[in-house]
Design a binder for these strands. Structure first.
Lengths: 117, 117
DNA sequence: TGACAATGTGTCGGAATCGGATATAACGAA
DNA sequence: TTCGTTATATCCGATTCCGACACATTGTCA
């Protein structure tokens, strides 16, 4: 339970959050992450290639993400990434933090927006 | 319903989000905002003076925040700020967006963190 | 009184982050 | 073989963040 180590990463920059979240479903390659973030956020958060690959490098260096063997892939260009256990450990309190923000906003009666289809 | 106008501000940078959220409770001066953000986030988000005053200037320029008359204040140094209706209009979909992120994370079974006291 | 902590606004400059344009190449289908 | 999509990657300017510092006012208390 290395709380101090984890706390040093918080709060997560938005791009990092979305990348880690996309990877909770299993390993993905960069381009796949880009698409998944778009779908998961219902197109409300767009991740361009610059932000994506910059962040992947940093996330690797910080050991929040690991390279996941490509494993006989039909497309030789792809590089796969997966969430490390440290990444999991960081994502979790960050989500809790955001829940706090949302809860606070609701307490403050910030007008509800209808959910989109 | 100036959706396009509002969308141009989204997503909100984290510091802006917290400042606007702090102002939903009524007008506050800069230092008060700093303290309120700290309390509202249970010390998980810290806003330093650099970030604060930078953002206040930008938020004013963008008309998300307005100067709120100081109104016989015991302390002459204070400058008060309040949320504009545009600011309200921007905060609302941003909160909805974050709810989406949290919901997605829960779907993905990102481990629950116990709430702090 | 005089000192000192807390309050309060603000600037500065470097670091981190973001985001679009661009480059390059492999893949798939027509 | 040509074209659109998939895919990785870099570059670079713009934005955002953040702590250090400066400076003034207010409140407290010995």
């Amino acid at each position: 339970m290395d709380k101090a180590r984890i706390d040093a990463f918080l709060p997560l920059a938005p791009a990092k959050l979305h990348i880690l979240l996309a990877l909770t479903g299993g390993k993905l390659h960069g381009y796949g992450i880009m698409q998944k973030v778009l779908r998961q956020s219902e197109a409300r958060y767009k991740l361009g290639p610059g932000t994506l690959y910059d962040n992947l490098q940093r996330l690797m260096k910080q050991s929040l993400v690991e390279e996941g063997g490509s494993l006989q892939d039909r497309d030789s260009r792809r590089r796969y990434y997966r969430l490390s256990s440290l990444g999991q450990g960081v994502l979790s309190p960050e989500i809790a933090r955001l829940e706090g923000v949302v809860r606070e906003a609701r307490l403050r009666r910030v007008p509800q927006q209808p959910r989109r289809a």
